[in-house]
Structure formats: C-alpha cells, structure tokens
C-alpha cells in the first residue's frame, strides 16, 4: 500500500487573524500559568513533581486549536500545556497541583495526572508511552460507534523507544483509526540526548514504516503546528486513518522542577540560548505586530485579563481545603 504523503502546510490565507491572535494569547496564558508555578514552587506548597512545558507551548496550542471541543486528548507527565490548550479548568488544575480536594482529580494524582474529561482532556499518564494505547483505544471506540471524533496522543521523543508506540502505530494504521500521534521532540529524555538513545534517522520514517503518513514541522511555529494538525484531523475524520506528526521544540527549564539546569553538564547554555531565540510566543507576537493585527494597548489589556485570571486561580488553589484523608479510599472500584 502506498502511504499517502501529506502536503507541507501552506502558510497563510486559511488562518484568520482572529485565530492568529488566539494562538498568541493562548500560548501566553500557558506560559504565564507555568511561570506562576515556577515562581511559587519554592514555597513548597505544591508538593508534587512538576514538568513544565515552557518553550514548548506552540505544539499544545497549535494542535488543540485544530481540534473541536468534542475531540479527545491524551497526555504524559508533561501535561500542563495540553490540559490548558484543551480548555481544561485552570482553577482545578492548580488545586490538583496543590493537593486540594477541588483539584481535577481531588488531589489523587498531582501535576502528572491532569484531566478534564468534559473538555476532552481524557487522561495524562506519567509512564512513558503509556497513554498512547489509550488514545488508540479511544479512537477505536469512536470508529465502532460511528462518531466523527478524533483523538490525539501527545508524547515525547522517548516514547518512540518504547514497544507500545510501535504496537499502537501498527494497529492504528491497520484499522485506520482516527488518531493522531503527536510527538514533541525536545531532543531530551531527562538528561539524555536523542542521539544517545536512538540511531540517527528521521523519526517520521519510523512512523511511515508502520504504514501511516508522517509530517515534520517546526514545533515552535504555532501556525505550522496548527496547519499540519488540521490536515491530519481532516484525514482522520474522513476515515483515512492515523497520522504521525513530529514537532521539533525545546524545553527551557529542567526536566522536572522550576529551575534552569544548563550548568549541570548535559546540554550547553548556547544550545539553550539558540532555542530561546526561537521562542514560539515571541515569534507569534512579532508576526502579529508586523501584520498590524495587534497594538500595545490591546495587548496590555488582554495580558492584564490573563494575569488576573491566573492570580485568582492561584488564590483559589491556595485557599481551598486540602483533600481529606477520608476521601483517599473512595473510587477504588466503580
């Protein structure tokens, strides 16, 4: 079977100016939420590991903007951006990270298990590769029931090393499941570079070998992410099966935690600075100003609104009561 090739996204006319603005402010909101976490982490009230997506916002936002609210998303340990981009409730997210009863899962999971199923954010699983089969299964359910929903599995570059990725790629291609495999390649698994974990070959070829089309894009260009994802979503809705999307990007801060760690020896400050130059948010902002779609006053007003929302959410998360030990044994069985 010939694997259909996806055309490279054509930048431009089909992305409205409203959408371009939305991309920017959505990414900025994710950034500000995560910076808010980083700033407050040393207070030691968020007593769970946090894996920040700062620097990688364009993938979550661009991909989720190409989805409908009814579409579904599965994520990993690094799930904050996906959750927010899929319209997950901010207050309940922060409450979860603070271990509060009002958290999105009542404090049971913390930062690595964010979900908001009513918004299509179905689950986040902190075992590498572990949520990929769940996404494929979700797509299988939609296929069986004739629903036109699409499911996205977000995962990192390391997931391609796990057997389960290949098992699911094979199965999804075989059954033409309406699922998107979205790989955020940030070059590292914890402190280990991709080149020390995988032979040099295009990751897209790995997916193509499973018989599905694959497309690589600039993961720091939200428009590129959006367009590639939209293409794949349309394919899936037409019943043409899964697509693998590879987006190169970069995590700015340490693997787990609020700090920068370019000094500990696994990557260089200059590599980090190069990627920082390619900030997805600054890039989008430049584009908006150049196109005359945004002026400073407008921007300031929008940012003030976002900040107010975030401050209120932190205030809520801090003040709402901790989960109570009596709830710990609930929901072991349905």
């Amino acid at each position: 079977m010939a694997i259909p090739d996806i055309k490279p996204p054509n930048t431009g006319p089909d992305v409205s100016s409203d959408l371009l603005l939305k991309f920017y402010f959505e990414m900025l909101r994710v950034r500000l939420v995560e910076e808010g976490i980083a700033d407050r982490y040393s207070e030691q009230e968020m007593r769970c590991p946090v894996h920040l997506s700062i620097g990688q916002e364009a993938v979550a936002v661009g991909a989720c903007q190409a989805l409908q609210p009814r579409d579904k998303v599965f994520s990993t340990h690094r799930c904050h951006a996906h959750y927010l981009a899929k319209a997950g409730d901010l207050k309940r997210m922060l409450a979860e990270i603070y271990g509060k009863a009002a958290g999105c899962i009542g404090g049971r999971g913390g930062s690595m298990h964010l979900m908001d199923p009513d918004k299509g954010m179905i689950a986040s699983i902190p075992l590498v590769g572990s949520s990929i089969p769940l996404a494929a299964g979700s797509a299988l359910a939609d296929q069986r029931t004739g629903s036109d929903r699409v499911t996205v599995a977000f995962f990192g570059d390391a997931a391609l090393e796990e057997g389960v990725f290949h098992e699911c790629g094979n199965f999804a291609a075989l059954r033409r499941l309406p699922v998107l495999f979205v790989c955020e390649n940030n070059l590292y698994s914890v402190y280990t570079h991709l080149d020390d974990r995988q032979p040099k070959r295009p990751l897209t070829e790995v997916a193509r070998a499973h018989g599905m089309p694959a497309l690589a894009g600039d993961g720091n260009d939200v428009v590129a992410v959006y367009q590639a994802t939209r293409e794949a979503v349309e394919r899936a809705r037409r019943g043409e099966g899964p697509t693998f999307l590879l987006f190169d990007t970069y995590r700015w801060r340490e693997h787990c935690g609020p700090n920068y760690d370019n000094d500990i020896g696994y990557r260089s400050e200059s590599e980090y600075l190069e990627w920082r130059e390619r900030c997805p948010i600054a890039h989008q902002r430049r584009l908006l100003f150049e196109a005359g779609l945004l002026d400073p006053d407008q921007e300031e007003a929008r940012i003030a609104k976002i900040r107010a929302e975030i401050d209120a959410a932190f205030a809520f998360a801090k003040s709402t009561p901790l989960a109570d030990p009596s709830q710990a044994s609930d929901h072991v069985y349905a």
């Binding site: 007593r47 769970c48 271990g99 509060k100 009863a101 958290g103 009542g106 404090g107 049971r108 999971g109 913390g110 298990h113 009561p321 901790l322 989960a323 109570d324 030990p325 709830q327 710990a328 044994s329 072991v332």
Partner: peptide, 16 residues
C-alpha cells in the same frame, strides 16, 4: 498501607 492506591496529596496521605 490501606487497600487503595497511593495518593499524591499530602492531605490524602496521613495514615497511609
């Protein structure tokens, strides 16, 4: 530990 998974929150952990 009691017969349920290990929760994350420090609010849920006492007695675990």
């Amino acid at each position: 530990p009691p017969d349920h998974p290990t929760p994350s929150s420090r609010g849920l952990i006492p007695g675990f």
